[in-house]
């Protein structure tokens, strides 16, 4: 991994079209500004983690829950 030191207001350019600026430093928090082409996907890493976790939970979908749903449907019919 490439590690660079930046000061407040300084930036990093990635390829020709992506720019990351240090906007604010406050204690343990750093605010970053990201300038990128519209098609670039930018997400907090936690978003991916949350999706992976949710996918795992989806696999464990409960037969009991499904049965309850079918039953509800039958009752409403």
């Amino acid at each position: 991994m490439l590690v660079l030191t930046r000061k407040l207001g300084e930036s990093i350019a990635i390829d020709d079209h992506i720019k990351i600026v240090v906007v604010q430093i406050k204690g343990k928090q750093v605010r970053l500004g990201i300038k990128a082409p519209k098609e670039t996907k930018i997400h907090r890493e936690e978003v991916y983690q949350a999706i992976q976790d949710q996918n795992k939970k989806a696999l464990d979908s409960s037969h009991q829950g499904l049965d309850a749903l079918s039953q509800e449907f039958e009752e409403k019919k």
Partner: peptide
């Protein structure tokens, strides 16, 4: 995101 470039701030 504004177009054509975006300036997302985390």
């Amino acid at each position: 995101r504004p177009s054509p470039s975006n300036e997302n701030i985390a």
